[in-house]
């Protein structure tokens, strides 16, 4: 990475990939108005270029922070990682279903996450505790992946509802606005919700264990009254209830109900995350030391 050939990579900034995604989004929107056969190739090309720049940017930041003692440990980094995960998911779907207008739903959320990252850039990061390293990493990564899966589930749910509405109202198909089939959206929605529930549950449980260990070490009690812990607990109960409800009650497995449940779950998750941001739930050094321990 330090050789002369890679020096141009150090010039990659957040605006590079944000710009790629933004242009891709504008092109996606233009599908509604006119037909251009090469456009999808440009959209996919721009998204892949964005993902490349996004990955390089995070990797270089990781290297820089790691040598400075704080790799990938701020909300800024985590928002960018979630947006990268969602962007990769989008690229895969866009390549597989290049006739469908999925970008209209994915790209705004990816850009929103980048915007949120900029918004929380100056927030303090996580604190350190030697005993909680592994659990902190598990906690963080599970929540990161769970959030990404929940965002994908949310997008699939929104697409399902839009598509179901159009079909129910018998609106004629538009060549510039073609969504994946209801069946595919329902499967994507269900599977993403299922993975999100599992990952978020793992994240919350590992968070509880991390706090138990921390409280034993510091001789302090677990902060059960913390708004983040309470809301996270409620979110977990909600997600488990949704999953059980979906498994037991047959109609919940079909059509719009699962999409509505996903939307509600996402709103719940967004609330928990806003509590997290507001309460500065974790501090930087926690995950720094945890990551360092895992990586060394």
């Amino acid at each position: 990475m330090n050789g002369p050939d890679a020096s141009w990579m150090t010039k990659i900034s957040l605006s590079c990939f944000a710009f790629s995604y933004a242009i891709a989004m504008i092109l996606e929107i233009s599908r509604l108005f006119f037909r251009a056969p090469v456009r999808i190739l440009i959209i996919i090309g721009l998204t892949i270029a964005g993902i490349f720049a996004h990955t390089v940017y995070l990797w270089l930041k990781f290297q820089k922070d790691f040598s400075g003692g704080t790799p990938m440990s701020s909300w800024y980094d985590w928002c960018l990682m979630v947006s990268l995960a969602v962007a990769i998911t989008y690229a895969i779907i866009a390549i597989k279903k290049n006739e469908n207008s999925v970008g209209i739903f994915f790209l705004p959320l990816i850009l929103l996450l980048i915007l949120v990252a900029l918004f929380v850039k100056n927030q303090e990061a996580f604190t350190q505790s030697e005993a909680t390293n592994v659990w902190a990493v598990t906690h963080g990564i599970s929540l990161l992946l769970g959030t990404s899966a929940m965002i994908v589930a949310f997008i699939a749910g929104v697409m399902y509802l839009v598509h179901a509405f159009r079909l129910k109202k018998k609106l004629p198909p538009r060549s510039g606005f073609r969504l994946p089939s209801l069946e595919w959206l329902q499967q994507c929605n269900r599977q993403s919700l299922f993975y999100a529930t599992g990952l978020i549950a793992a994240g919350l449980v590992s968070g509880v264990i991390m706090n138990v260990l921390k409280s034993t070490e510091n001789q302090t009690g677990i902060p059960w009254s913390d708004s983040v812990i309470i809301s996270s607990g409620v979110l977990l109960v909600w997600l488990v209830t949704v999953t059980v409800f979906e498994a037991v009650y047959k109609p919940a497995r079909q059509g719009r109900k699962i999409a509505y449940l996903t939307l509600a779950s996402f709103v719940f998750l967004a609330l928990v995350l806003s509590f997290v941001f507001m309460a500065e739930h974790a501090s930087q050094a926690d995950s720094v030391s945890a990551l360092r321990e895992v990586l060394t």
């Binding site: 037909r35 079909l167 198909p173 994946p180 089939s181 209801l182 069946e183 595919w184």
Partner: peptide
């Protein structure tokens, strides 16, 4: 041209333009 892309018979529209919007397979 798009002359072939637009289906004009009822059964072809029913399957290609509508049924495919519901079912993946």
């Amino acid at each position: 041209t798009e002359i072939h892309r637009k289906r004009v018979s009822i059964p072809s529209v029913a399957v290609a333009d509508y049924a495919s919007q519901f079912f993946e397979r």
